[in-house]
Amino acid sequence: MKLEKKDILGMKDLTVEEINLILETAESFLEISTREIKKVPTLRGKTIINLFYEASTRTRTSFEIAGKRLSADTVNISASTSSVIKGETLIDTARNLEAMNPDVIVIRHSAAGAPHLLASLVKQSIINAGDGAHEHPTQALLDMMTIKEKKGKISGLKVAIVGDITHSRVARSNIYGLSKMGAQVFLAGPATMLPRNIEQMGVKVYNKLEDAIVGADVVMMLRIQLERQKQNIFPSLREYSQHYCLNRSNIKRAKKDVIVMHPGPINRGVEISPDIADDPSYSVILDQVNKGVAVRMALLYLLTGGNE
């Protein structure tokens, strides 16, 4: 099977078949990263540009490693959004990059929809590495790959996502992806962190963490951005952590074999208590990072027609 898509802009646009294809391809790539010589010649001669308008360590490194392990040439461009507003527009940047004939452009941008704008302008494949509060499809794919490995399936599972849903692209992509794959998604957060009409996405919504995680197979904790405090969506980290921090006591309400996920970077003791985060019987956070490389290798491979 072939991926009949030019771009990966969001989980909203992917079918179940496409998600399965990506996950299966990623699974077959996992092994490469365990070799002594972690490199295959598959994408030799291909060029991948990582265009990051927003700070990122994990995602950018993951894309870069993914490209390199497939022998593609990877170029990283970091730009601050403020200079973009004043200087060259995204459209001009896109046209310039296009003129250099890369094969894939990976973009992260603080403005929702920026990857869509880019995709409409250039002939190259675009991968959305996170756009504002909109989507982060590669994160959802690596999360689903992790869940599938740990649980053997996705369909029928109960997944709770906890935290600032309003500002989370990880939450949106996971809601689309997990729902399509047959999981039930439960959300928890104070009303200030739940965007309007979110229940129309087919999720169940709770205000209390304790209510949302009852019987959960997977609990996904979202990162709290400290600067959001200024918007008064929560009064203090102290109060937030007292009610939305996953700990030894409240985790008992989930299934015994629950796995705990976090897209990182963690605020220890705010979203997850350190003993849960470090407990390998619960935490799969580092598995997620590990799967991230494989998922991104799979996407680069599928988009460049590697399976033709």
Binding site: A133, H134, R172, Q200
Partner: peptide, 14 residues
């Protein structure tokens, strides 16, 4: 501000 601002990840004007 409504369902579409929610799924598009764009800040809502209520």
């Amino acid at each position: 501000e409504g369902y579409y601002s929610t799924i598009l990840g764009l800040g809502g004007i209520p």
